[in-house]
């Protein structure tokens, strides 16, 4: 038994150096999604890879490696062979907020990756309970000033999108509400609908049905343009808070050192997927924003990561939110 193992590991070493770039891909590609199956990032990954697999002629298999706000999966992906057969779906948390939240992070979002391209942006909305005594953002801000210390903000746990974006929102409007943590968006929304907590910020895909159903109020959407899914919700700019621009983006990365032509091939497949009508429609159904051509390049993704890290680090550190 031992001899066989040794022989096989020896062959493994040889094969790894032998086969390379130009025929890529010759076998299925693994995409590590650092969240559980069924979550927003997983859904985006599955929609996008569905089309990418067809372009590349090889199946992209999704492996969900969840844990520690997504950093477990990204750490593993960052440390894997940079041969193009392991890629990952990163997002605002893992490649933006993580360095501030996890001081012991084993990767550097700006240095340890070969960016492939942005896949989708998910707008963030400011929502409040149905009984909230204000009907627009201005009224909300006035109420917050007048009732400091009485307002509760819900969030889906330290490190979640709703937590980071909520902290950012509070720092911009200079409010210090009492934070109430939930395990995930579902229970937080439930208490928001029951008028137990006052407001929260979260991704459109989670809150849109409740806004449409009249169970909660939406004050503004933090994007430059209104969303076709919620045409009545004004943008933060329209509502008078232009500084609050934030989106929970998802993007494809490969480990650092992945050959340039493989990165190019993967980027090409991603761009093609984002031009596909069906893929576009499926992403738009979720309230996702399809990146423009300029936003789809590896270079612009690298810039996005750098600016996100620079933006989140001071905000989250000031709020004392660390998950060390």
């Amino acid at each position: 038994m031992k001899k066989v193992v040794l022989a096989l590991t020896a062959v493994a070493g040889l094969a790894a150096t032998g086969a390379q770039a130009q025929n890529y891909p010759t076998r299925p590609i693994t995409m590590i999604v650092p969240f559980a199956a069924g979550g927003p990032t997983d859904v985006v990954a599955r929609i996008v890879t569905d089309n990418m697999s067809r372009t590349l002629g090889q199946q992209i298999v999704i492996e969900n490696v969840a844990g520690a706000g997504g950093t477990t999966g990204i750490t593993r992906a960052a440390q894997s062979q940079p041969d193009g057969y392991t890629i990952m779906m990163g997002h605002m948390g893992t490649h933006g907020a993580a360095p501030a939240l996890y001081p012991n992070l084993k990767y550097d979002p700006t240095k340890d990756f070969a960016p492939i391209g942005l896949a989708a942006g998910t707008p963030i909305l400011i929502v409040a309970k149905k009984d909230f005594p204000a009907n627009d953002l201005k009224g909300f801000l006035d109420y917050m000033k007048a009732n400091a210390g009485k307002v509760n903000m819900a969030h889906a746990g330290v490190g979640s999108v709703s937590h980071s974006t909520g902290i950012l929102f509070n720092s911009i409007i200079n409010a210090k509400p009492t934070l109430v943590a939930y395990r995930g968006t579902g229970p937080a929304l439930n208490d928001l609908m029951a008028n137990t907590v006052d407001y929260m910020t979260d991704q459109i895909v989670n809150v849109a049905p409740q806004i449409q159903g009249g169970n909660i109020k939406a004050f503004a959407i933090a994007t430059p343009e209104r969303s076709p899914a919620l045409p009545n919700v004004p943008t933060t700019k329209e509502a008078g808070l232009p500084d609050y621009q934030v989106s929970a983006w998802n993007a494809v990365f490969a480990p650092k050192g992945t050959p340039a032509d493989i990165v190019k091939k993967l980027n090409g497949a991603l761009v093609k997927a984002l031009d596909d009508e069906n893929t576009k429609k499926r992403l738009a159904d979720l309230g996702g924003v399809i990146p423009t051509n300029a936003e789809r390049t590896p270079e612009s993704l690298q810039k996005l990561v750098e600016s996100e890290v620079a933006r989140w680090t001071p905000v989250l550190k000031a709020a004392g939110a660390t998950a060390e």
Binding site: G186, A208, Q210, Q212, G213, D285, L286
Partner: peptide
């Protein structure tokens, strides 16, 4: 709670939400 409110009460139902959203159905009161 999932079908009528769109709120998943537990982890299994959260997965169901995921399954539904992948197919473009976002669970909710509608």
């Amino acid at each position: 709670p999932l079908l009528t409110l769109g709120i998943p009460p537990n982890a299994v139902m959260a997965l169901m939400v995921g399954a539904m959203t992948i197919h473009g159905i976002i669970p909710g009161p509608q």
